[in-house]
Amino acid sequence: MMKILIAIVVALWAGASPTLAEESVRVSDAWARASVLASRPVASYLTIESAVEDRLLGVTTPVAGHVMIHAVEKDGDVSRMKHIETLEVPTGERITLAPGGMHLMLMGLQDKLSEGTTFPMTLSFENAGEITVEVSVLGIAAEGPREVSE
């Protein structure tokens, strides 16, 4: 009986653990605004959730030369974009990057980003490793990926 129980537990553990590792960090709703002008930085937004504490170390994409993580610091009426090196992802907390707040700034774009296209973006996490997502390019006036369905 005990042996069977252990076998079941081991089987469950073996079966579940790869899924757990994959699911420890979830990156969803990745989108960017279409470029208005060529050679201008573009902002990209997404949501990060993690079952365990993790840290976003960096972001890369083949469409841009450099990606910076920007927080927005409000100093009274003035907003300053603040370049942050890494982004803490606390356990169970949903971090939403959205217009007017935290965003990824894509610089050195080879081409303008056109509405309706997508591009891959890779996020490197300290524990979860690299996660690649497809980023949807929405219109220049888009406020988020869900506004159409809402």
């Binding site: 208005v36 930085p41 573009v42 902002a43 927005v72 217009p99 007017g100 894509l106 006036a141």
Partner: peptide
Amino acid sequence: FTHCPDVCPTTLAYMAN
């Protein structure tokens, strides 16, 4: 300014709206 990736397009799109 036009090199502003977030607040400016967000606000101008809002103004257009």
